[in-house]
Amino acid sequence: MTALGMIFRPQFPPERLRAVARAADEAGLEELWLWEDCFLESGVASAAAALAWTERLRVGIGILPVPLRNVALTAMEAATLERMFPGRMILGVGHGVQDWMGQVGARAESPLTLLREHLDALRALLRGERVTTKGRYVTLDDVALDWPPATAPAVLAGATGPRTLRLSGEAADGTILTAGTSPEAVRRARSLIDEGRGTSSGPHRVVVYFHAATGPDAAARMHAELAAWGDASAPDISAAGDAETIAEAVRRLAEAGADAVILQPTADEPDPEGFARLIAEQVRPRVP
């Protein structure tokens, strides 16, 4: 079954998160995803709060920019959340927006090398291993977590370009595809991920963000949203309308290879609590 969720966008004020998380949890929504975008809201702090306010909702962080974070700190925070809320935290890491990384003096000369080194070390630490490594960017000397999780959480990588998609297939447990990804683009991404996986037979979860809007002004808000992203003329990357319109788009993404579809509201969504309830109560029954 394709998992379904929504994004609490960092354009929404942080104090709004509690009401949205609780509405999602009460309505039976499966997943709520958060971004760590510069310079808006913290991914880890927001995830911890959302997990504490809810009972069953899974909370994804997609993504933590690895140039901003020492890998030991990422592992400590992920392990703490996993131990406190077993099986409910979903961890995503990635390059981050390079212009933002430059603004804070963290831009890497080789983002791909940094991501590979971070993924390898992070997954080993979360498995409870003692790690010594000296890479181009990641250096650890006899480091192990004192409180590793009982079961290592999956580590997903945000990816768009071919090289990063192949790397995600090789070095991560799953891949996050940004909004603006059409069903055909999901198929292409799956192919590149599989190239990276080679003969690996383990699971690899593909999470796809997808632009969605509902309500009487949905079409106008979506047009403005896509224009702001520079995607106004791109086909098959959004759905604006009623629950069936959104569900039809989700079904196409699932058929293309998405294991989870996370609906991304517009930045000016007037009722994110209602958006969460609509997905859980009206879209979910229409999606296999």
Rank of each mutant, 00 (worst) to 15 (best):
L114E: 02
T133V: 13
S182D: 11
S110H: 07
A152G: 10
T160W: 15
T133D: 05
A171F: 00
L167Q: 07
E170Q: 06
D120P: 00
W147A: 15
S168E: 02
L115C: 05
T151G: 09
G196S: 06
R166H: 07
T132F: 03
T181K: 12
V155G: 02
E117Y: 03
S182T: 10
V138E: 03
I176W: 11
E117A: 01
A159H: 12
A108Y: 06
V155W: 00
L167E: 08
L145V: 05
R188D: 13
T164G: 11
Y137T: 04
R197E: 11
V186N: 13
T113D: 02
T181P: 13
D141Q: 11
S182N: 08
G169Q: 04
L140G: 08
T160G: 14
P162R: 15
R163E: 10
D120T: 10
T199Q: 12
R136C: 06
A124L: 10
T160S: 15
A157T: 09
E170T: 00
S182I: 10
T164L: 14
E129K: 10
R116C: 01
V143R: 08
L114T: 01
R188G: 12
R190E: 13
L156D: 00
K134A: 12
L115G: 03
A121H: 05
D141W: 12
A159F: 12
W147I: 12
R127A: 12
W147P: 13
A106N: 03
R187W: 15
T199D: 15
P111N: 04
A108F: 05
G180T: 11
V131G: 05
S110M: 02
K134C: 09
G196E: 09
T160A: 15
P148W: 03
A121G: 01
R188F: 11
S182G: 06
G169I: 01
G158Y: 04
G128M: 07
A172Q: 03
G128P: 06
G161H: 14
R166D: 10
P153F: 02
E109C: 01
R107Y: 00
E170C: 00
A144D: 03
P153V: 02
G174S: 06
S191I: 13
R190H: 14
E184V: 10
V143Y: 10
G158E: 08
T175F: 01
D142Q: 11
D142K: 12
D141A: 11
T160K: 15
S191P: 10
L177R: 10
T178M: 15
A124R: 15
